[in-house]
């Protein structure tokens, strides 16, 4: 397969040759060289080449606007004074800007502590998840053992079975946590409860069963399968054991894949509402906070009166903006890795 640079060079050269040849033919009378069909083909191609970029621009611009619309709306609303929300003369640009909404939302969400809390949960769970999922993916990619297809079927099942199905049993497992009956042995017959503790996120991640772990295992497996076998054979011959080979040889080769999975893991943990709402009763994460923002607003700003239809929108949109801001900033700086990473991470194959 040609590299990108070769491709570009080839394209350039071809164009030059084509142009020169065409000029020559034109000078000598084009009918002598080409059949009418070929002439038509060239003409069509020329027309498409001129028209298509315009269409492409229109399509991309239009759809890009559709995607960016909520974010523009968010920006427009979050900094708008509350009274101007019902002003029909304002569509995008408010007459004055205010930081009051942001400030109030920040206080109500107690954003500083929540964000720190979320970041802590998020980073620990993501790191654990990436490590364990990669180990599992490597095991599935390079070793043959009995029951492999059945076990891999379980991985696929993990992707397919909606997490809502197992919420209640999981909740009971966490609420009366006994780890196969081990913990009561040390705890005088008592189980411990993990509800409201970060362990409800760390533990599954530690055992490669966190949020969308099945998908990550699949990604790693595909990636490791794509690496040349000679790499490991060389390591084995040099006396590396499989675990050492994995750490010393395979991990450095899988850097992009690791980064991609890590970024996605962070994004999904950040946006996760399901796990945190099932196993946390306090408003501990940003997503949970945002979900409950409207009830908080009702009780704090509106004295428990039901606010009007559009009354809360400025605070809600401010909350949205606050919530996505950290992840958005990360995305702006790292979007290259999101996109290129998934292209190279071997999802294909």
């Amino acid at each position: 397969m040609a590299t990108k640079r070769e491709e570009r060079l080839f394209e350039k050269e071809m164009q030059k040759i084509r142009k020169a040849r065409y000029e020559k033919m034109k000078a000598e009378g084009i009918e002598n060289y080409l059949t009418p069909e070929q002439i038509r083909y060239n003409k069509n191609k020329k027309i498409i080449g001129a028209v298509w970029p315009i269409f492409r621009f229109l399509i991309i611009f239009g759809l890009g606007f559709v995607i960016l619309y909520p974010i523009i709306f968010m920006l427009s609303t979050a900094f708008r004074p509350y009274e101007q929300m019902n002003d029909p003369s304002i569509i995008w640009l408010p007459k004055s800007f205010t930081l009051q909404n942001m400030q109030e939302t920040f206080d109500i969400m107690s954003f500083d502590t929540t964000v720190l809390n979320t970041v802590r949960l998020n980073l620990i769970a993501s790191v654990l998840q990436v490590i364990t999922c990669s180990i599992t993916g490597y095991g599935f990619a390079r070793f043959n053992f009995k029951g492999k297809s059945i076990l891999f079927g379980i991985v696929i099942a993990m992707i397919l079975v909606p997490p809502q199905i197992i919420t209640i049993p999981m909740y009971l497992q966490y609420a009366f946590f006994d780890l196969f009956g081990l913990i009561p042995l040390f705890n005088g017959g008592e189980t411990i409860t993990l509800i409201n503790s970060g362990w409800t996120m760390y533990l599954p991640a530690m055992f490669a069963n966190g949020i969308r772990a099945g998908l990550f295992i699949l990604i790693f497996r595909q990636f490791f399968r794509g690496l040349p076998k000679e790499l490991e054979d060389a390591a084995y011959l040099d006396g590396c054991g499989p675990f050492k080979t994995y750490i010393k040889v395979m991990v450095p080769n899988a850097k992009t894949s690791f980064l991609t999975v890590f970024l996605f893991s962070i994004v999904w943990y950040w946006n996760d509402y399901y796990v945190s709402s099932s196993f946390f009763t306090r408003n501990d994460t940003v997503a949970l906070m945002l979900k409950n923002l409207d009830s908080e607003l009702t009780s704090r700003l509106f004295n428990n009166q039901t606010p009007g239809i559009r009354a809360m929108i400025v605070w809600l949109e401010s909350g949205c903006l606050l919530t996505i801001a950290p992840i958005l900033i990360m995305y702006i700086f790292l979007q290259r890795y999101f996109i290129e990473g998934i292209e190279r991470s071997g999802l294909v194959g």
């Binding site: 095991g139 043959n144 379980i154 197992i166 497992q173 490669a208 295992i217």
Partner: peptide, 21 residues
Amino acid sequence: YGYGFIALWLLGSIYFFMMPV
């Protein structure tokens, strides 16, 4: 060794996935 690599996940999926299912 293959079992060794997937052991962690296997344990986890028994406890966090198969048992709840």
